[in-house]
Amino acid sequence: MADSTWLPMYSLSDVDSFQKGRSILELVRNQDTLELWVVNRHTQAHSLSCVTNQSVAAGDSVLFTLIPKSGDPHYFALQATDESENYLGLHTLIAIKEKASQKLFIWQLEERSLAIDAAILNQQAYDFANYDPTYFLINKRYNPQTLQDSFGRVVGGVGDSLYILVVNWGHADHSLHFHGYHIWDLDGLSKLPAPASKDTLPVRKGESGRLLLVPDKTGEYPVHDHNLVAVSGGGVYPNGMFTTLLIQ
């Protein structure tokens, strides 16, 4: 991590080297077809799920074919079927746009607990009953690295329709607070009748949904977890779940 803490982490990358959070893909509904080859550069086999389940041996590759149609969800999840591998980051998503020009940003939320990391690495038993994470991430980054994230940093103009796809891969709930604007909760993350206009909304573990922001003014405005402890990384504030909206 940026604070030099070493965390075990799997990565799916669009380049042939280890890169964090570089694997988000986008498709246009009723238009694109994706033939996605996943190459396993790791030293052990993995079982992956993306609409279908497939196993990929060390050094081998598998093909997923994705054709987003009407009625499909707003993204395809590509993830390990094994919980510990999933926790260690072996997941990504293929976002589905309604049209090619749609401005879509992706926030994948997750946390990391050093105790769980150690248990997995040492092949010891673990559970999340006493989960006490100390890193809180958006697209595997924390503030201020989140500001350099081309997938997640929301940049737009006044009057734009800016869509944000939020996916909580983690094991904790988060409460995202938007400065400067109310957003539209399009898919009922808040549990209120959709679309609800909110400035703070829960993203419970395992849940996902789209948000729509139509800025009415320029400026740079934070978005952060309002469990303010989660705006820390390794116990240091503000190295946590924090980014900004940049409206020009």
Binding site: S190, K191, L192, K198, D199, T200, L228
Partner: peptide, 25 residues
């Protein structure tokens, strides 16, 4: 529920079971 985060709900939401107020809501 008739209002959340300073916005009136178009249709009130009946609370038949539990409800949670997350930090900042």
């Amino acid at each position: 529920i008739v209002n959340s985060d300073g916005r009136d709900l178009p249709t009130a939401l009946s609370l038949d079971s539990s409800w949670s107020i997350y930090p900042g809501e």
